[in-house]
Design a protein around this nucleic acid. Structure first.
Lengths: 109, 109
DNA sequence: ATACTTCCATCGATAGACGATGGGAACCGA
DNA sequence: TCGGTTCCCATCGTCTATCGATGGAAGTAT
């Protein structure tokens, strides 16, 4: 029973979510996951094994930068910051997402 | 260069789109692709190499049934029909999709 | 005849999400 | 002071899905 696989994320939207979160300011990985969970009222549950690869992707593409620091709780943490390219990418991905959702909703209507 | 990869589909939504399309009535694969393209005004471009595997999945899960017939254009065509289980699945996937989109939009807001 | 459209289908590559796992440092209660 | 919990990092292996390339057959129009 329980063929329910309902993933905790819409595939293909993770980068967008992370970029948007970082647009609010510099943040560490754990914080990003918390923020997404909180603001979505527990709907968006980003596992760490999804999040860190995503951050690596974004780093590689130059959409974010990283530096080590200390968290509010006095822990060693890696802080990520959105770059100029990241901002452009965010805008593009958002536009594309809206386009897709709109199209899908036409089908579902 | 064009690093633009913008796929023609939101990953994870294809089954939903196909199920919804079939809810309108029995249809063959090619017709499903056409319908999605038309109704979405060319935004949703389902390649055949995405569509047919999807239909196989749906068949295997018992969400659709298939039978051979002849198309409006007098061609050999395989017609797909939504089953009762398919209807339930459509409802569930739709609900889940709405839930996700709503959550994402809270993040993007 | 031949070119185009309709309709089927598979294969291999690629990418992305996820469960499991591992580690280390700080804090907290008993 | 010691054990548990929270915080924060990260990787590996698996699985699933999308997609480009490819191939075929049958009808239709020129």
């Amino acid at each position: 029973m329980g063929t329910d696989k309902s993933s905790e994320l819409l595939p293909g939207t993770l980068d967008l979510l992370v970029l948007k979160t970082l647009a609010r300011g510099r943040m560490h990985g754990y914080g990003i996951a918390q923020h997404l969970k909180n603001i979505s009222e527990d709907v968006l549950q980003v596992g760490e094994s999804s999040l860190y690869p995503a951050l690596q992707r974004l780093l590689l593409n130059g959409y974010v930068e990283a530096e080590w620091g200390t968290s509010e709780n006095n822990r060693r943490a890696r802080y990520y910051t959105l770059t100029a390219d990241g901002r452009k990418q965010l805008s593009a991905e958002r536009k594309e997402f809206d386009r897709m959702v709109l199209a899908i909703q036409k089908v579902l209507a």
